[in-house]
C-alpha cells in the first residue's frame, strides 16, 4: 500500500528522536512525568490536525483555516453562558457537574455550527475552501473578541470540568485519552463506513464521484461540520488546561496542525490520508519540540527542526502521496 513506506519512516523517526532525546538528557527525558506532560500538550493540536485532515481528504483544495477561531469561539460562548447562568451559585458537586455538562454541550454545539457554516459556504455556495475558511476564521475571531472585549474569560477551577484538561486516568492524561478515542473513531469511520469510502473517492476525483452517484455536496457539508466539532473539542481541552477562554489563544497552532497532517501523509489535493500516519507525525513533532526545550535549546530551533523533519519525510519516503498526478501505466 502506498502509505506503508511513509508509516515506516514515521515509526523510525519516532524511535530515533526518542533515542537522541534520552541520550542528550542522560536519561532524564524518559521520566514518566515528561511523557505525561507531552501527552497533555499534543491532543489539542492533534485534534485540530484531524479536523484539517478530513477537509484535505475531501479534495477540491480542502482545508479549514478557521479551526482555531471556532475552537476559541465555542468555549468563549460556553464560558460566558455558563458563568452567567451559574453566577452566585453554590460550589456544590452537583452544581459543578451541571456547569461542566452544559459547558461541554454548548461548546460542541457552537463548534458544530461553525463547521456547518464552513460546509455551507464550500458545498452550497461553492466558495474555494481556503477563501471560505479564511473569511470565517476572521469572522469567528471578531465575534469572539467582541464578546470578551479582549481579555480572557476566566473559567476558574470547576470540578469535574477542569479534569478534562488536567486530570488523568491510571496515569494517562485525559486529553490524551480523548485524542486516542477520537483518533480511533475517525479512523474507523474513514476505513469502515460508507461515508469514509465516499469521502476518499470524492477527494480523489470529484467529477467521477458525482457521475457515480455520490452526493458530493452532502459529503462535503458533513466533513466540514465534523471539523468544526473537533475544533470545539480541542477548545474544550485548551480552555480547561488554562482555565480560561481567550479569543486569540493558540493562533500559532494552525500551521503546526497543517504540518502534522501533511507530514502524516495527507495529500493536500485530496483522496489520501490515514489517522495512524497523522498520530505518528504528531507524536514525532511533539517529542522533538519537548526534546529541544529539555536540553535548553532556543525555541526558534524547534521551527528549524520541524522543517528539517518534514523535508526528510518527503525526500526519504519518495511517496506518491506528495505528488498531485498519478502516473498512468506505460503502453
Amino acid at each position: 500500500m502506498l502509505s506503508d513506506g511513509h508509516i515506516r519512516f514515521l515509526i523510525i523517526a519516532n524511535g530515533l528522536i526518542l533515542l537522541v532525546a534520552a541520550l542528550l538528557s542522560k536519561g532524564a527525558f524518559l521520566d514518566p512525568y515528561n511523557f505525561q506532560s507531552m501527552a497533555t500538550q499534543l491532543p489539542e493540536i492533534g485534534l485540530l490536525a484531524i479536523a484539517i485532515m478530513l477537509t484535505m481528504v475531501s479534495g477540491n483544495g480542502g482545508i479549514d483555516l478557521s479551526v482555531i477561531s471556532s475552537a476559541n469561539l465555542s468555549v468563549i460562548v460556553a464560558a460566558l453562558v455558563c458563568k452567567a447562568l451559574f453566577a452566585g451559585a453554590d460550589s456544590s458537586a452537583q452544581a459543578g457537574w451541571s456547569f461542566s455538562v452544559l459547558f461541554v454541550v454548548i461548546a460542541l454545539t457552537v463548534g458544530t455550527l461553525c463547521g456547518l457554516l464552513n460546509g455551507l459556504l464550500v458545498a452550497r455556495a461553492g466558495y474555494a475552501p481556503i477563501l471560505a475558511t479564511l473569511g470565517t476564521q476572521l469572522l469567528f475571531l471578531g465575534v469572539a473578541t467582541v464578546l470578551t472585549g479582549g481579555p480572557a474569560v476566566i473559567l476558574g477551577d470547576i470540578a469535574p470540568l477542569s479534569s478534562i484538561g488536567n486530570g488523568d486516568l491510571l496515569g494517562i492524561p485525559i486529553p490524551f485519552l480523548l485524542f486516542l478515542a477520537v483518533s480511533i473513531g475517525v479512523s474507523l469511520m474513514l476505513s469502515r463506513t460508507r461515508f469514509g469510502f465516499r469521502l476518499y473517492l470524492m477527494g480523489s476525483n470529484a467529477k467521477a464521484a458525482h457521475f457515480a452517484g455520490i452526493q458530493t455536496a452532502t459529503v462535503t457539508l458533513v466533513t466540514y461540520t465534523i471539523a468544526g466539532s473537533l475544533a470545539a473539542l480541542s477548545g474544550i481541552i485548551s480552555s480547561t488546561r488554562s482555565a480560561s477562554a481567550k479569543a486569540d489563544f493558540g493562533v500559532s497552532y494552525l500551521l503546526i496542525a497543517i504540518l502534522i497532517a501533511v507530514m502524516g501523509g495527507v495529500n493536500p489535493s485530496g483522496g489520501y490520508g490515514k489517522i495512524l500516519g497523522l498520530a505518528l507525525a504528531g507524536v514525532a513533532l511533539q517529542m522533538l519540540s519537548s526534546t529541544l526545550s529539555f536540553i535548553g535549546a532556543n525555541d526558534f530551533l524547534k521551527d528549524f527542526m520541524w522543517g528539517l523533519l518534514l523535508l526528510l519525510s518527503i525526500g526519504l519516503t519518495d511517496s506518491s502521496l506528495f505528488k498531485t498526478k498519478p502516473k498512468p501505466a506505460p503502453s
Binding site: A28, N34, S37, T40, R241, V251, S289, S293, F294
Partner: peptide, 22 residues
C-alpha cells in the same frame, strides 16, 4: 528561555516542558 511567538499557548508549552525537568 521563551516561545518564539507571542502566543499564550506557546508559553504554556515551554513551561510544561520545563516543569518536566523539575
Amino acid at each position: 528561555t521563551g516561545p518564539a511567538q507571542a502566543d499564550a499557548a506557546q508559553q504554556i508549552r515551554v513551561l510544561e516542558d520545563l516543569i518536566a525537568k523539575k
